[in-house]
């Protein structure tokens, strides 16, 4: 029983990592760009499929960097030509835009790569369990944990110590004032959008290695990612990561204890959080209550 629980919690942790990476990017984009990016999930899927295509040529490790960067290129075009004209208008406009974009992109993925799910080839040395007793711990899962820790740690350090990071935080609070202080908010918002898309692309590849590829992989991960943001607290990046991990682990444990509730448990957690602490675990006071 104990082994089963550890195994399920660990499975949940891995799923939670995917939610966390997604939620982090969504939060960044919601904060500075003021856009609820419904296309985030399809950018995630796009990252995975691009990696699937280039991996045979460049190998797994290089695809882990190159594929998200290719997704970022598309993301920057979308930001510049579709989203930028909507800044400063009712947030509903950009929400509808990204919602439509998500459907178009998902169908493009079906058209290019086919609608049937496919496995994502991992290097054999990553895919074998490390030991018999810890059969669920493969090298790949360690890689997922390490990369995510590095990327999120690096992101938080950059937000804290670099000028662009400081400006992103300042702009989250008061975009008009940073603009009047001489900060080019067009470039800043584009860079921030790009960082968010990079995280989505990376999450896509990491998830593909675990769950395989399918055109709808993004849409199935985006809802839990929104839940992660609400649980962690809107406006808190750390909260988004924490929220993702919590709902991932909770859903993993429920899968072992009471499988039929596996899907619903994250929404139950969200409901409880919204009732007890509407701002979310680490959300700012006054934002939602």
């Amino acid at each position: 029983m104990e082994a089963l629980l550890i195994y399920s919690a660990f499975n949940g942790l891995i799923t939670g990592i995917f939610y966390a990476l997604m939620a982090l990017g969504l939060s960044l984009i919601l904060g500075l760009n003021g856009v609820i990016n419904f296309a985030h999930g399809t950018f995630m899927a796009l990252g995975a499929y691009l990696a699937f295509t280039i991996e045979p040529y460049v190998g797994f490790w290089a695809s882990l960097v190159c594929a998200p960067l290719l997704a970022v290129v598309l993301g920057l075009l979308v930001e510049r030509w579709l989203i930028r004209p909507l800044y400063g208008r009712d947030p509903l406009f950009s929400l509808l835009l990204t919602f439509g974009l998500a459907m178009i992109m998902e169908d493009l993925i079906r058209t290019i790569w086919g609608s049937v799910g496919q496995p994502f080839a991992l290097p054999a040395y990553l895919n074998t369990p490390l030991s018999g007793s810890l059969f669920f711990l493969t090298g790949y899962r360690l890689v997922v944990i390490l990369i995510t820790a590095l990327i999120t740690g690096g992101l938080f350090a950059a937000l804290r110590y670099t000028r662009i990071g400081i400006r992103i935080r300042a702009g989250n609070a008061d975009l008009e004032t940073i603009s009047a202080m001489g900060v080019n908010i067009y470039v800043l918002r584009a860079a921030n959008f790009g960082i968010g898309i990079f995280l989505a692309g990376l999450a896509g590849i990491l998830a593909a290695g675990q769950l395989g590829l399918s055109p709808s992989m993004g849409s199935s991960l985006i809802m839990p990612s929104f839940v992660a943001i609400i649980v962690g607290g809107v406006g808190s990046l750390m909260g988004s990561v924490l929220g993702g991990l919590i709902i991932g682990i909770a859903s993993g444990l429920t899968a072992a204890l009471y499988p039929v509730a596996q899907e619903v448990v994250i929404y139950a957690i969200m409901a409880v959080v919204l009732v007890i602490r509407p701002r979310g675990l680490l959300g700012q006071e006054g934002l939602l209550e």
Partner: peptide
């Protein structure tokens, strides 16, 4: 755009100061 005006040489001290309250003085 406001950032161009600022960079062209206008230092603006807004009403109510509009300090970034959650960031340190040095970060501001």
């Amino acid at each position: 755009p406001p950032y161009r005006i600022a960079r062209a040489g206008v230092g603006y001290v807004p009403e109510g100061r509009r300090i970034f309250g959650h960031m340190s003085v040095h970060e501001n």
